[in-house]
């Protein structure tokens, strides 16, 4: 879908929400839930935590949407809220503690159990191989420093432009470029077996 058309659709839904049309916000949630969820999952590397953060992000947006000024695209705003929610989650002591305990008890299974290959056309063996591959990739992403991870997810998984990433993260363009370059080199080294 053309981005401008998409933004206009979002703006219309927000205006409807501002006019107390309750289902307008539901439509926005249904439209963006998978993208926001995937973003949270790739940043956090944990299904349950991603679920919690994605819900939290939508609730925050709901509470602030009456003050939306239409200066930026809704999707950019939503991504910013989601990324910040994930950042706060990663910073929280509780989260770090639970991660540490999880790693000690069950290294991979618990965190990556959500990666399920749903392609019915693939054979069970191929599905299993693909699942393992996805787990390796997610492990590599999770091993990156938080800032580089956020940027690589926004750029190479969510497909945001550099300008959009600047708006979402608040970093300068030069910083975004250099951090993405470093993250790509690290990932390339970690994924050598697959490359």
């Amino acid at each position: 879908m053309n981005r401008k058309v998409n933004d206009r659709e979002d703006d219309a839904l927000i205006k409807a929400f501002m006019n107390d049309e309750n289902n307008a916000f539901d439509k926005l949630v249904l439209k963006y839930k998978d993208r926001v969820f995937n973003l949270c999952f790739r940043i956090l590397g944990d299904y349950e935590e991603a679920d919690d953060c994605a819900q939290d992000a939508f609730v925050k947006v709901y509470r602030a949407l009456h003050r939306f000024r239409f200066e930026a695209a809704f999707s950019t705003y939503l991504y910013r809220v989601a990324v910040n929610t994930c950042k706060n989650k990663l910073k929280s002591k509780e989260y770090r503690h639970s991660k540490k305990m999880l790693r000690l008890s069950n290294p991979k299974e618990e965190r990556l159990h959500a990666i399920e290959i749903r392609d019915e056309s693939l054979s069970p063996l191929t599905q299993l191989e693909r699942k393992e591959k996805e787990e390796i990739i997610q492990e590599a992403i999770s091993s990156l420093p938080a800032e580089q991870r956020n940027l690589i997810v926004l750029r190479d998984i969510e497909g945001l432009s550099y300008e959009e990433i600047v708006r979402v993260t608040g970093y300068k363009l030069g910083t975004v470029k250099s951090k993405i370059a470093r993250a790509r080199q690290k990932l390339r080294d970690k994924l050598k077996g697959l490359v």
């Binding site: 949630v29 839930k33 995937n38 299904y47 679920d51 509470r63 992403i141 190479d156 790509r184 490359v195």
Partner: peptide, 30 residues
């Protein structure tokens, strides 16, 4: 080439879908 391949790998990652009851949970929280 190796950089492009690793970027393609990331691009090809399957999107993890939100749970079926995601909207209901958001509504409950709201």
């Amino acid at each position: 080439r190796s950089l492009q391949v690793s970027v393609n790998i990331l691009n090809s990652l399957q999107e993890i879908k939100a749970p079926e009851d995601f909207l209901e949970k958001v509504q409950q929280r709201i």
